[in-house]
């Protein structure tokens, strides 16, 4: 084939990606590199441009500007061989409802035969926990079962890159945990690169090795869940009462600030509190402000907090 991708190149390479709908700019210069392997979560409030980004990477949407390569090819010009490397799991798939579960998966597997050695339907149904439903019509599956079938359909061609778009929206906690276990099993076994989009920090922390936070059309934070949490925790808020008035001070060095404060106060400081912001606080504040329309201010503040 004309374009075998470099085996050691990045799975995803994006620079200065721009997208506008009419005069509304959704992505304003997004840069992103994802190396093969592991789970990367694209986290951000609704309307931050997560779905747009993923659809551009999937080759389902034409971008307004910037460079995008997925496995060495521009997704807008991805051929069938390239397509065979992608596995896609969307939120709202409700397709082929009259088919029987096993027939559908076996049929989907057929499409990949010229390109890879796809999963056999029975083994795959076993893996996603649907072996008992093999003969059922797809439309009779429950929501959680349906989503597991979608995952099976997404990985049936043994993809190198799996897109999971808001995979647990509308799940109850039990179905959510089962789904998370399934994703862990997949990534342990297959060595596949997963790009997960979610607006749920908890989900991102549970599943991902790396979290990218998307807001205001750019990536505003990038790191492992631990690193992001540590970075966010360096900023703290100190509150106290002095001369009958409430005082608040935000600082990167809470201990040092409190030491100085108490050394000079002559007993006037009362009700001292120190709150160290964790990642969740920082993220929730961001989302809150973002959704109340203060997008720019929210992004600036979050950046200050997370980038020491």
């Amino acid at each position: 084939m004309a374009h075998a991708p470099a085996p050691d190149g990045p799975a995803i390479a994006v620079s200065d990606l721009r997208m506008r709908y009419g005069d509304k700019e959704v992505l304003s210069g997004l840069d992103l590199t994802v190396e093969p392997g592991g789970v990367t979560a694209l986290l951000g409030p609704n309307g931050a441009g997560k779905t747009t980004t993923v659809e551009i990477l999937e080759g389902f949407r034409a971008r307004s500007g910037g460079e995008v390569e997925v496995f060495g090819l521009d997704p807008e010009h991805g051929d069938e061989r390239w397509r065979a490397k992608m596995g896609i799991v969307l939120q709202e798939w409700n397709d082929n409802g009259k088919w029987r579960v096993r027939d559908l998966l076996a049929h989907f597997a057929d499409y990949y035969r010229p390109y890879s050695d796809p999963w056999e339907a029975d083994g795959l149904l076993e893996l996603v926990g649907l072996a008992g439903e093999a003969k059922q019509r797809v439309q009779t599956l429950s929501g959680g079962q349906r989503r597991r079938l979608d995952v099976a359909a997404g990985i049936v061609g043994r993809p190198s890159l799996l897109f999971l778009d808001e995979p647990t929206t509308g799940f109850d906690p039990h179905a959510r945990r089962e789904f998370h276990e399934l994703i862990h099993r997949l990534t342990d076994m297959e060595g596949v690169t997963v790009l997960l989009t979610t607006h749920d920090l908890d989900e991102a922390e549970k599943l991902a090795d790396r979290i990218l936070i998307l807001a205001g059309g750019r990536i505003i934070a990038d790191g492992s869940p631990d690193a992001l949490a540590r970075a966010a925790a360096t900023s703290a808020e100190v509150k106290w009462m002095q001369d009958g008035r409430r005082q608040v001070h935000a600082t990167d060095d809470a201990t040092g600030f409190v030491r100085k404060l108490l050394a000079a106060d002559d007993g006037a400081v009362r009700d001292l509190e120190v709150h160290s912001a964790n990642l969740e606080d920082a993220y929730l504040t961001l989302v809150e402000r973002f959704e109340s329309g203060e997008a720019e201010a929210a992004v600036d503040r979050f950046r200050k907090e997370v980038s020491r």
Partner: peptide, 11 residues
């Protein structure tokens, strides 16, 4: 219902 989109997502 997404059947067409599914077709588009496969080689």
């Amino acid at each position: 219902n997404g059947t067409l989109l599914r077709a588009k997502s496969m080689p």
